[in-house]
Design a protein around this nucleic acid. Structure first.
Lengths: 218, 218
DNA sequence: TATCTCGATATGTTATACTATATCTTTCTA
DNA sequence: TAGAAAGATATAGTATAACATATCGAGATA
């Protein structure tokens, strides 16, 4: 229920990046929309066959990779990604994402973090993030500030494990910062939608004219 | 129940290549040996969390890869694999494996094919297959011969789908060829064991001296 | 305001993964 | 020939994925 989240996140990211609604994906795969929702929210420990079916519908391939080969594979993936690979912006974006992930462990019930993570996840897959360096930098600053006060709250900066164990609710966050966080989440979502509109939803689907026929979506 | 087989095969291949028995893997993961057996035989549609748990115990990482990136990733994997990558022998081996897979669909109850496939699967992961080019070539010839008579039996060489539908039992195979097949299966297993003995069981496990303590195995 | 889409959630049912435990066969070895 | 080890298989109980269907609130749009 932990390492699984990576896979699930990727799945969701791919769905959104493809411009598919849960219902559209449901129609493609036969999996009920309600179940898609449950899966994406971590409410279901999906089976291998279902995972593969969903992945296939999203043009993804499931692979088991020897640990030794992981760095190399990651390198290739970065250079193949529709986005800009090693751009400073993307690098930044990944760093922020790491912090967000940590924070989400410390504050599991802080919904804004989840939204922010999801936005980042999608932004990473877009080829025109580069133009929004400024906006992303701002969010990054906010996140890091939050991380600092999280550390402070956790007491006298001990090991990571104890830290995340120490602060387990959102109550400790100053309402001022909480407000800023909320704003950032909204801003990121807007940014994401803007870029999603501007960017073609990935040129990868092996289906004819999927935006023209209304087989998909509403 | 089809694309899943690839993952399951990889899992099993990794277990064997690591020299782990089903019970040893069971001890590592907490999954009962009976269940490991069921999984490896396609008798269970494993859950994501279980898959990841087993994979982790075998030093594998589960990834969703965009289809566009698959060829590149495969390339990297080939060049990273402990074995010899693009050696003619390995290429041959893969070709034979494809044929075996097809045959297994045509003759699901022909156990020898399964054994042969498994041996090949392991052989592919060994770095010293190259020396056994001759033996493998012989098996390859046998397999291809079997494929030819399979085609003949299937009637007047129609499409693949009809073909596999047409011949659905092992009865059609001449006992002479069946005997040769059995011999090949045995020979391949011997070969596999020989090479497994000669080759270090993969230098990848991040555990201290796993062959010295009897934490593992019997 | 009325409508539409999207995602989250609820309920009841069925299928099956997973567990614990045990038995059986085959193969290898002392 | 006896015993160990590996893998396949069986039984019974529990947990839960997956299904069908329906509803609800939030946003967007007319």
């Amino acid at each position: 229920m932990y390492a699984t989240q990576n896979i699930i996140d990727t799945l969701k990211g791919a769905r959104v990046a493809n411009g598919l609604s849960q219902r559209a994906l449901s129609r493609r795969t036969g999996v009920p929309q309600s179940h898609v929702s449950k899966i994406e929210n971590g409410g279901a420990d999906i089976r291998l066959s279902s995972l593969i079916e969903l992945a296939r519908a999203l043009d993804l391939d499931l692979r088991l990779i020897p640990r030794r080969a992981v760095p190399a594979v990651d390198g290739v993936m970065r250079s193949m990604t529709p986005s800009i690979a090693a751009t400073p912006v993307v690098r930044d974006l990944n760093r922020i994402l790491d912090v967000v992930r940590d924070l989400r462990i410390a504050y599991p019930d802080l919904g804004e973090l989840k939204e922010i993570q999801e936005s980042f996840q999608v932004l990473k897959t877009l080829r025109n993030v580069d133009r929004e360096a400024e906006a992303l930098r701002n969010t990054g600053r906010l996140i890091r500030k939050l991380q600092r006060s999280c550390r402070k709250l956790a007491g006298t900066g001990r090991g990571d494990a104890e830290q995340t164990e120490a602060v387990r609710n959102a109550a400790g966050i100053p309402s001022e910062q909480r407000h800023a966080l909320r704003g950032a989440a909204r801003a990121l979502q807007d940014l994401r939608n803007k870029l999603l509109d501007a960017a073609p939803p990935l040129p990868s689907l092996p289906r004819p004219a999927y935006r023209l026929d209304d087989d998909e979506d509403g």
